[in-house]
Amino acid sequence: MTEYKLVVVGAGGVGKSALTIQLIQNHFVDEYDPTIEDSYRKQVVIDGETCLLDILDTAGQEEYSAMRDQYMRTGEGFLCVFAINNTKSFEDIHHYREQIKRVKDSEDVPMVLVGNKCDLPSRTVDTKQAQDLARSYGIPFIETSAKTRQGVDDAFYTLVREIRKHKEKMSKDGKKKKKKSKTKCVIM
């Protein structure tokens, strides 16, 4: 069974824990209790493949930012979460993405942009803004509501699919490099 290491990042209060708990335990946590770091595991079937999701729910508070490099190193894919009623959390996505790329030393890291709290009427981040940002990053965008469960499975499952595509691409690139290195030079 394939294991996928997913990391949920975003500013404090955007609903990272609520999304994760909704996926794992099928219930909505409405009281806000700032996370330092929590880890969850769940076995699911995605596109006919049974897999184990190892999900790291991270601290959004700035005082825990020193811990970010460590979990970013171990993560295979990242859910970059903002709240649709919090423009600052949307603007912060850029910083999370840049930090992930720096730590992973790669421009090509599996990510999904997630606009959470889409059940709320007080939207300050337009869907088109988020779609445009995701398009500019070359990553999928999904709106979710941890409260109603809308888009929750889709967000995590899409990230797994992005990781699969990335692994497939990397193995193809690896095979191309191996083929090239088999060419021999004969000096007579």
Rank of each mutant, 00 (worst) to 15 (best):
E107F: 13
Y71I: 13
V125S: 11
P121K: 08
K88R: 11
V109H: 02
T124V: 09
S106D: 09
N86K: 04
S122L: 07
S65W: 04
S65M: 03
R73N: 11
H95A: 14
R73M: 09
L79F: 07
R123W: 08
R97E: 08
K104L: 11
E76I: 15
E63A: 03
T124R: 08
D119F: 03
Y71T: 14
H95L: 07
H95C: 08
R68G: 06
I84P: 15
P110G: 01
H95I: 05
F78I: 13
L79Q: 00
S89V: 04
L113T: 01
Y96E: 04
S89P: 06
R102L: 09
L79D: 00
D108W: 04
V103S: 09
V81P: 05
T124M: 10
V103N: 09
E107N: 09
L113F: 13
R73P: 04
Y64T: 13
I100S: 01
D119A: 08
E76G: 12
V125D: 12
S106C: 11
L79S: 00
K101G: 08
C118N: 06
R123I: 07
L120G: 14
Y96G: 01
V114C: 04
C118D: 10
V103P: 03
F90N: 05
H94S: 14
V114K: 01
Q70H: 14
N116H: 15
R97T: 12
G115P: 04
I84S: 15
F90R: 09
H94G: 05
E76Y: 14
R102K: 10
I93C: 04
D105C: 11
K101D: 04
I93W: 04
F78L: 06
E63G: 06
C118H: 06
V112N: 00
A83Y: 03
D105A: 11
F78Y: 12
M67W: 03
D108C: 08
I100A: 03
Q70K: 07
Q99T: 04
A83W: 01
F82E: 02
V81K: 00
V125C: 11
Q70S: 11
L120V: 12
N116M: 15
R73C: 10
F82W: 07
D105Q: 13
G77T: 01
C118R: 05
S89G: 08
D69Q: 08
L79K: 00
E91S: 08
E98C: 02
F78V: 12
V114Y: 02
M72L: 07
M72A: 11
V125M: 10
H95Q: 11
V112F: 04
V125P: 09
K101T: 08
E107C: 14
D108G: 06
P110A: 03
S89C: 12
D69T: 04
V81F: 07
V109E: 01
S65I: 02
K101I: 07
Y64G: 13
E107H: 09
D69A: 06
V112L: 09
D105P: 07
N116C: 15
R68P: 02
A66Q: 12
R97D: 02
K104V: 09
K117D: 13
A66D: 13
G115E: 03
D69K: 04
M67A: 08
Q99L: 14
V114E: 01
N86M: 01
E91P: 02
S65L: 03
V103W: 15
D119L: 05
I84L: 14
L113C: 06
H94L: 14
P110W: 00
D69N: 07
E91G: 03
F90V: 12
E76Q: 14
N86G: 12
C118G: 11
R102W: 02
E76V: 15
D69H: 06
G75L: 04
V109C: 07
D105K: 11
N116A: 14
G75T: 13
D69Y: 02
V81L: 15
D69L: 01
S89Y: 03
V125R: 08
L79M: 08
G77I: 14
M72W: 06
L113D: 00
L113A: 03
R102T: 07
D126G: 08
V103D: 09
C80D: 01
M111N: 00
S106P: 04
P110V: 03
T124W: 06
K104M: 09
K88Y: 07
